[in-house]
Simulated assay, not measured.
Amino acid sequence: MTEEKLQDDIGVTQSASVSAEVAGLREKFGDQVLSATAGLDCEVVVLARECIVEACHYLKNAHGFEQMMDLCGVDKLAYPGHAEDAPRFEVVYNILSVSRNKRLRLKVGANERDLVDSVTEVWPTANWFERECFDMYGVIFNHHPDLRRLLTDYGFEGYPLRKDFPLTGRVEMFFDESQWRCVYRPNQLEERVLVERTWPGVDRG
């Protein structure tokens, strides 16, 4: 396969030749490489969810991406132009090759009950990143060694960074003196009556 044909097939928008990493992923995983584009800071490769662990092993061992710098979630529920039949969530992996001074961004799509295989076996630092993504978005990471909430309380319900989560939350927590513990109750928000602003020197009547 020629380099020009490879660029056409995977949608790389770089002016330079396709990178060795993208070419290698395409050769090894074929149609599971859904797209590859030149981002503002690094190449962005969208992969099929089923191959994420194997792809990460490949990038670490064959191309020297020793570190995962970050893993985060994205809720595309209200994203402009997002197709209704496309996965609602994205899991984004930012990886770094220190030895080659190169970054790469991987993305996989997932719906609410889809399982995304954990990459903790590739980069142990993914442990807490995946827990945070689970806590905030509800993405379930299969084979994770300890998939518990990380930032919210143990009894918390819902996922705060989902686009359909209410801005004020659903409950509030307070300390109950009679029970001597923290308890939850439904939000009781009172409507604020705003007073018209006045300025110095204005006759206030």
Rank of each mutant, 00 (worst) to 15 (best):
D41H: 11
C42Q: 10
C42K: 02
C42V: 00
V45I: 14
V53Y: 05
Y58T: 12
A62F: 08
F65C: 05
M68P: 06
D70M: 07
D70E: 12
L71P: 01
D75S: 09
Y79G: 07
G81N: 10
H82D: 07
E84A: 15
D85Y: 10
P87G: 13
F89W: 00
V91N: 01
V92K: 03
V92G: 13
Y93A: 06
N94L: 10
S97G: 09
S97L: 05
R100M: 07
R100D: 09
N101Q: 14
R103L: 04
R105P: 06
V108Y: 08
V108R: 01
G109V: 10
R113L: 11
D117P: 02
S118Y: 01
V119N: 09
W123L: 06
P124T: 11
A126C: 11
W128I: 14
W128N: 15
F129A: 10
E132K: 09
E132V: 10
F134N: 07
M136K: 07
Y137A: 04
G138P: 12
V139D: 00
H143C: 11
H144M: 11
L147V: 08
R148K: 15
R149D: 08
R149G: 08
L150M: 12
T152Q: 05
G155A: 00
G155I: 00
E157V: 13
E157I: 13
Y159R: 15
L161P: 08
R162D: 09
R162I: 09
D164L: 03
P166D: 05
L167T: 02
L167A: 08
T168S: 07
T168K: 05
V171E: 13
M173I: 14
M173K: 15
Q179H: 07
